[in-house]
Nucleic acid binder design. Structure first.
Length: 757
DNA sequence: CTGACTAAGTTTTTT
DNA sequence: ACTTAGTCAG
């Protein structure tokens, strides 16, 4: 037992060996939070004789769960001590409970889990059913509102609209829930909500779980939402053996309902909570910590924290100003190559982080050009690929006969003569028979059933229905991978993918990879495979085998650490993201919108904070003067967050502490670049020009000006072009940034003169 | 009904 | 830029 406390500092030991009752560990990055949680589990089992069976540990990702489990095993002496330990994400734990308690809920055991894609399809259907214009009410916006309500545990019946648009949401929410029920499907939010509701409605069921789980441990507590927190409180029961670990400064999932104020609620709901602070940082040296502190200190509504490290001060935070995203990528790749050549680091020691996945492309190209390997984490999510979703849709429809969404997806993929018209008839005819489309389809197998289809259409439908029936008969005898093989063969799906292109080939590979994953489920029921596949993220699939620099979003960097970290795209509109700061620039924004924007920017800042604190030794922050987005170039100012890093700990950039106006400084940098460009030519010019060789499809009329150009205006003087576009006719509208108080103006091209030198 | 073409929107982040 | 939804000729 002493082994378990060995190597921990006094505060960590206090946390690990805390007594029963609520415990809240609040700690900064790199302080060993997860380690404390890990040791706590081992401690409970070894020193306090708690059976692992009685412990539920909730982690943020499946991968974190697996890693934690391995480490706990390492800490314990005997094998088998961890049997029955419930460790996993909230969603995974809830899915299991719901499966077991199927008869107490409105769903059968065979329910499927809808991902965002499926949800949007349902919502499109909902909008059609309600005659709402999908232009005015996008499925996406609807979904966000419905999801927000669910995370707050608000049912459609409880949803109180205060204006007409909210009333539309209420109706959509109602219909949406109806359709989920009809499909015997749950969405991600439902997994939590239904579990909470089950426990609230059925004290007898809750009682069983209270007897089962004596200790509830939660990692990354700052990222729990209302539903999750309520669930935690329910499961804690009278015993109140809650052990939560978190850092409000690292809360970055508000957009999906997470609320760091749950930390405060916890303290209010359990006034006798044993609050333990871990302040020492073991990951980064002081310069990086000072940068992090400088950034996060700008947030209001937080408890100031003093991060300290006993490590020697290392290299200062390096800021690099690139010309464009290619130049930025070149800097990253060259720096990495240099550090590897000097034998200072291994390829696996590096991480490049960015705000949006779209930014990965330029970096990837940089690596490709240099002929260096890299690991891309979670850009086009594996399970979001068409071919994967298709195959899974087959399996899901085999598994769950009620599911319309999957059936619609694959009924004519590969094409088998079932077109729009036929599907419409299936729907209307089914409705008159009181059947949903999947059941109407099966009904056609009976030759005595009369239905308004042409012979050809009916044959196509029964042909498909027959296949489905065969597969369903086999589903319990075959293991998941055998079933996939069977489906692929019966449908000719692979030859459908094989269109001779490179892309087709990689799609086939993906499907085969999926089958490879399925092989690991040999002997397990189809439902297990489908459920786990729905709940994994790509971060979970990250292999640690290949030693190469990792490319990942700031969000997926949470919980990780690397010796050398690059954060690219340190620009206004990227980080903070344009969505969060839009109301700032809009003079018509309501005060509500402004407040929301302020909150959003704080979250962006926390995201940056998370990124900074991933770095152990070296941290590079890059921004580009010109960045192409959606095709055209735009000039962005350096991120406001950069100015929050104390000057003493940063180096290498022309970035000046703004005396009066940040705009002025940014402007000077841009003109520096413009001048430099005029004299020396653009970096990477070759690549850009080479594209122009075989040009015109349709002359996409060129603009006179483009981002980065230096221009002169009679009234405002010298300025830099942010972007330029053709308005109606030949009129070219140019957004120009002028120094000082003038700022950005939109000007007709005729009034601008290009300055060459 | 299918395959090819055009228009539009999309992009913040993920269980 | 890139993909998907929508339109149209065979």
């Amino acid at each position: 037992m002493t082994d378990i406390l060995k190597g921990l500092n006094p505060q960590q030991q206090a946390a690990v060996s805390a007594g029963d009752g609520p415990v809240l560990v609040l700690a900064g990055p790199g302080s060993g939070k997860t380690r404390v949680l890990t040791h706590r589990i081992a401690y409970l089992v070894e020193a306090r004789d708690v059976r692992a069976w009685h412990i539920m540990a909730v982690t943020f990702t499946n991968k974190a769960a697996r890693e934690m489990e391995n480490r706990v095993t390492g800490l314990l002496s005997g094998s088998g001590q961890l049997d029955g330990l419930a460790i996993g994400t909230f969603h995974a734990n809830c899915a299991r409970i719901l499966r077991v308690e199927a008869e107490a809920t409105a769903y059968t055991r065979d329910y499927v889990i809808f991902d965002t894609d499926d949800q949007l399809k349902v919502l499109t259907q909902v909008l059609a059913d309600l005659n709402l214009d999908p232009k005015k009410n996008t499925p996406r916006a609807m979904l966000n509102k419905i999801s927000a309500a669910k995370n707050e545990l608000i049912t459609p019946e409880q949803y109180m609209p205060d204006d007409y648009s909210a009333e539309k949401v209420r109706r959509a929410y109602l219909r949406y829930e109806e359709l989920l029920r009809q499909n015997n499907a749950r969405d991600f939010d439902d997994l939590l909500v239904h579990t909470v509701r089950l426990f609230q409605d059925r004290p007898d069921v809750l009682e069983r779980y209270l007897n089962r789980y004596w200790h509830i441990l939660v990692d990354e507590f700052q990222d729990t939402n209302m539903a999750q927190y309520t669930l935690v409180r329910l499961l804690a029961g009278e015993r109140r053996n809650l052990f939560a670990v978190g850092d409000p400064d690292q809360s970055i999932y508000a957009f999906r309902g997470a609320d760091y104020r749950n930390v405060q609620r916890f303290r209010e709901d359990y006034p006798d909570t044993d609050v333990i602070l871990l302040e020492e940082n073991y990951r980064s040296h002081q310069a990086i910590l000072d940068a992090a502190t400088g950034v996060i200190d700008q947030n209001t509504d937080r408890q100031p924290k003093e991060l300290f490290s006993q490590r020697k001060v290392g290299p200062l935070v390096r800021i690099y100003e690139g010309y464009n995203e290619d130049d930025e990528a070149r800097f990253v790749v060259e720096t990495i190559a240099d550090l590897i050549n000097r034998k200072d680091y291994d390829p696996g020691d590096f991480a490049i982080m960015y705000r949006t996945n779209a930014q990965s492309r330029a970096i990837e190209e940089g690596f490709l050009r240099a002929g260096m390997p890299y690991r891309l984490i979670g850009a086009t999510r594996f399970y979001a690929r068409k071919e994967i979703k298709d195959v899974l849709a087959y399996l899901r429809f085999i598994h769950n006969p009620d599911e319309n969404i999957s059936m619609q997806r694959i009924i004519n993929v590969p094409t088998r003569g079932i077109g729009l018209k036929t599907l419409e008839t299936l729907d209307t005819w089914g409705t008159t028979m009181g059947l949903t489309p999947p059941h109407a389809l099966l009904a056609l197998l009976d030759e005595n059933v009369e239905a308004p289809f042409s012979t050809r259409a009916r044959n196509s439908l029964t042909g498909f229905a027959g296949l489905v029936e065969e597969w369903r008969a086999l589903k319990d005898q075959l293991s998941p991978d055998e079933l996939i093989t069977r489906v692929l063969n019966d449908t000719g799906y692979l030859s459908y993918l094989d269109d001779g292109t490179q892309q087709g080939e990689s799609r086939i590979e993906n499907v085969l990879e999926l089958r490879g994953v399925a092989e690991t489920y040999a002997g397990l029921p189809l439902s297990t495979f489908l459920e786990e596949v729905s709940l994994v993220s790509d971060v979970d699939m990250r292999d640690d085998e290949t030693a190469a620099p990792s490319l990942l979003t700031l969000h997926s960097a949470k919980g990780l650490e690397y010796p050398v970290v690059f954060i690219v795209g340190m620009e206004e509109n990227i980080l903070p993201h344009s969505r969060s700061i839009a109301p700032e620039r809009n003079p018509n924004a309501t005060s509500d919108q402004r407040q929301q924007a302020a909150k959003d920017v704080e979250e962006e800042r926390r995201l940056f904070y998370v990124g900074i604190t991933r770095a152990e030794e070296r941290l590079y922050l890059c921004y580009a003067t010109i960045r192409s987005l959606y095709g055209d170039s735009r000039a962005n100012l350096p991120s406001r967050f950069l100015y929050d890093i104390p000057e003493e700990v940063r180096q290498g950039s022309p970035l000046r502490k703004p005396g009066s106006s940040a705009d002025t400084d940014a402007y000077r940098q841009m003109t520096t670049w413009s001048t430099r460009t005029a004299v020396f030519g653009r970096p990477n010019a070759t690549r850009r020009e080479s594209r122009g060789g075989s040009q015109p499809k349709r002359e996409k009329q060129a603009t006179q000006f483009k981002g980065g150009d230096c221009v002169w205006h009679a009234k405002y003087g010298e300025g830099v072009v942010v972007s330029s576009s053709l308005a109606s006719g030949d009129m070219e509208q140019v957004d120009v940034l002028f120094p000082g108080d003038v700022g950005q103006k939109t000007i007709i091209a005729d009034f601008l003169k290009k300055m060459d030198s």
